[in-house]
Amino acid sequence: MGSAGAPLIELKGVTKVYGMGLSEMHALRGIDLTIESGDFVAVMGPSGSGKSTCMNILGCLDTPTAGSYKFAGLEVRGLERDQLARLRRNYIGFVFQGFNLLSRTSALENVELPLLYRGVSSAERKEAAMKALNLVGLTGWEKHNPNELSGGQQQRVAIARAIVTHPSVLFADEPTGNLDSARSIEIMELLTQLNKENGITVVMVTHEPDMAEYAKRSVHFRDGLVVS
């Protein structure tokens, strides 16, 4: 898709305005950001700085008010809901702070979920999901439900779910926010490994400088602008 040689992510003058008239809220005031394939970027900034809004736009969960967002050369602004969904389904993986696994659903079934929406057959789904779980070091835990797993293990399931489709980019929103430091390090090492060995582009929001250390570079947000 898109034109060859284009950067994976290219934001130009992206703004996002919530509300109208007097209650207008400028979450993003003109962002320029380019992320190449294979990069590992930490997005940092205080709350209200616009980093979450930016992540939502990058993750194709939301669209810019103005400016241009090109994902692998494809203009995202102006796409329909279902077109965005198709983009997320095929090229994007998400990891959330709160894990966001389906409760009362086994680890294996959680990981199979994105493949279900891709229409992959049952046998192939299972094989791919087992492989992804193996990659995050959860072989033997596939039958367990999220409530039977530790926080670190749940986040690994979430990562397996995000990478099972071999996405172009993995967006992680404070992936270590709910974990103790030992678990946090494990998760960061896993993300680094996926970035290095599997070539998955990772964009991670964090407010912990320790965690940002693992990234190849950091982007800092303040008041709706990229400051460095």
């Binding site: 279902d82 969904a85 198709r86 983009l87 997320r88 696994l101 389906l102 979920l113 994105p114 929406y117």
Partner: peptide
């Protein structure tokens, strides 16, 4: 609602 959010984020379409 959260489950629906997860499904949508993962790439479920409206009609699905």
């Amino acid at each position: 609602t959260r489950e629906i959010g997860i499904r949508l984020a993962i790439g479920a379409m409206e009609r699905e």
